[in-house]
């Protein structure tokens, strides 16, 4: 779990876009950890949300993830 969380944070810190879809994050984790299961990646992302390291960004119809403090983080 910790290695997946690290891979997610590495991607979130260095990705070109500050907001990304779950599948983009999943692909980035698979580059480092090819055997990581989707459900584990989701659990790791949820843990990072609960630790307030990642944030959700929702348009209402679809949802993206972002690194807290990177890109748009205020209300607007």
């Amino acid at each position: 779990m910790e290695d997946i969380k690290k891979a997610i944070l590495d991607f979130a810190e260095n990705s070109k876009k500050t907001k990304f879809y779950f599948s983009d994050m999943e692909k980035a984790v698979h580059k480092v950890l090819p055997d990581a299961k989707t459900r584990m990646i989701k659990k790791a992302a949820t843990a990072l949300i609960n630790e307030e390291k990642l944030i959700y960004f929702s348009t209402g119809s679809s949802t993206m993830y972002g690194l807290k403090g990177r890109g748009q983080t205020e209300d607007h």
Partner: peptide, 16 residues
């Protein structure tokens, strides 16, 4: 539309 507003731990249910 859209944004980072939500309630803690939930990724849905609130639309900014």
């Amino acid at each position: 539309h859209g944004g980072i507003v939500g309630v803690f731990g939930y990724g849905g249910g609130v639309i900014g």
